[in-house]
């Protein structure tokens, strides 16, 4: 029984995550993507972040209880402006 609980626990954690797609304004060079990615990854509760220059979008995986405005703040700290396009639960 204990074993089953331990097996289910990681799954439950996985389902408690969300993925946000964020449009980023003002990003003009590849290095901008690194600055934004690093800033997003510093936020507690962010599991992964991918930033693309060609689409000017970021995909951020984060804990369910994290407010998306914190993600936008992290982007703003690097000098860029983000807009949430969508948030999906996993």
């Amino acid at each position: 029984m204990k074993k089953q609980i331990f097996l289910l626990l990681p799954l439950a954690l996985l389902y408690a995550q969300k993925t946000a797609t964020i449009q980023i304004k003002g990003m003009t060079c590849p290095l901008c993507t690194t600055a934004i990615k690093k800033s997003l990854k510093k936020v507690e509760g962010v599991k992964s972040a991918r930033v693309r220059l060609n689409t000017k979008r970021a995909k951020v995986q984060f804990d369910d209880d994290l407010n998306t405005s914190i993600l936008l703040d992290a982007i703003a700290k690097t000098g860029y402006q983000g807009t949430i396009i969508s948030v999906e639960s996993r």
């Binding site: 003009t28 590849p30 290095l31 993507t33 690194t34 220059l53």
Partner: peptide
Amino acid sequence: QYPLNMLGYPYAEVEDEVLDYY
């Protein structure tokens, strides 16, 4: 990552992450 602004410095990537050429 593309397009590249300019190539006056070495440019490198680790997967999709750009190393800071500055």
